[in-house]
């Protein structure tokens, strides 16, 4: 592996860059009395990092994206921000080196950290994983080399967080009649995250067909949805028996479905094709005895 292609002097410089040089200051802030339902815009605007909660200029709490998703998927309903916000969290100071921020983000596994003034706790900005890279590169004047850096280990953690939101869902084996519960949650969650109807519909249809497949053939499985600003990437994995002939399975009308699946209105050999038709990019990999992985990519920007 290309361990480190970046020269030693560059690394030293990364150590030296203070947080304040690369923090985002234009993030959306909210007051403790704001309602959770009003945060949709803020979540996106803040690059899915964290939303600072301010009283005056003072930081009194934060809503992390993880906290926001927990709320979305909970039954709490619409409540004030103050009831959901974290009050114990790590903050950064403006003069700390960037490398501290990297360590903290990795350590806690969060997408962003607020930056406050040393004594007064006055809110200054946010360091988030996704803009940190840009900030560092701009600072090092390395923007033109950005592409090359992708393989470098030092940055691999940061780069891999180009997925801004990750949702995962487990499909447990259940009678087929319950199929659709997970797709229904996916659909609701995507709407709550503010995605447009056409995108949500395509995702929901693909998810539902896949969920029915998981229950019909694979004994359950796992959905992982990674969302960034450009692409919705949905991965559906199972440890089922695998598909002997993937090409054949993709043919419209080809089906190995038993009659009881057909009588539920499925198994007409259209499922995989349907999933593909909903995708801008579709991949399927299957190994006998190991399982099947479907990957559905949907572009978020209309072309």
């Amino acid at each position: 592996m290309n361990q480190i292609r970046i020269s030693q002097s560059v690394i030293e410089r990364i150590y030296e860059i203070p947080v304040e040089k690369i923090m985002r200051t234009d993030v959306v802030r909210v007051s403790p009395g704001a309602m959770m339902s009003e945060l949709k815009y803020a979540v996106k605007e803040n690059n899915y990092a964290c939303i600072p909660v301010l009283e005056g200029e003072k930081l009194i709490g934060q809503i992390s994206i993880e906290g926001y998703i927990d709320w979305l998927t909970s039954d709490l309903g619409d409540v004030p921000v103050s009831e959901i916000m974290d009050i114990k969290y790590k903050t950064l100071h403006p003069d700390e080196p960037v490398i501290t921020a990297v360590k903290e983000l990795e350590l806690i596994g969060l997408r962003g950290l607020p930056v406050v003034e040393n004594e007064s706790e006055k809110f200054l900005g946010v360091i988030c994983r996704c803009t940190m890279m840009e900030g560092v590169l701009a600072e090092l004047d390395m923007n033109d080399k950005k592409e090359e850096q992708k393989d470098d280990c030092l940055f691999s953690n940061i780069q891999s967080s180009s997925a801004l939101v990750t949702l995962s869902y487990i499909v447990k084996q259940k009678p087929l009649e319950y199929g659709g519960e997970i797709s229904s949650s996916i659909r609701a969650d995507l709407y709550k995250l503010g995605l447009p109807g056409s995108i949500v519909r395509r995702t929901a249809i693909a998810a539902y067909e896949a969920e029915m497949n998981l229950l019909s053939y694979a004994g359950g499985g796992l959905f992982t949805i990674n969302l960034n600003e450009e692409i919705l990437d949905m991965k559906i994995e199972d440890r089922g028996p695998g598909i002997p002939d993937v090409e054949k399975a993709m043919e419209p009308g080809y089906s190995t479905a038993p009659d009881w699946v057909r009588e539920l209105g499925f198994g007409a050999g259209m499922g995989l094709q349907n999933i593909k038709n909903c995708s801008d990019n579709f991949k399927i990999e299957s190994r006998i005895g190991e399982g099947t992985v479907l990957q559905v990519n949907i572009n978020l920007e209309d072309k």
């Binding site: 009649e177 319950y178 659709g180 109807g197 929901a204 539902y208 539920l264 209105g265």
Partner: peptide, 17 residues
């Protein structure tokens, strides 16, 4: 319009709105 009356019909119309 369908003669199928199971839960899947509801899930399906939910997904395609």
């Amino acid at each position: 319009v369908t003669s199928l009356t199971n839960r899947q019909t509801i899930r399906t119309v939910e997904m395609v709105e």
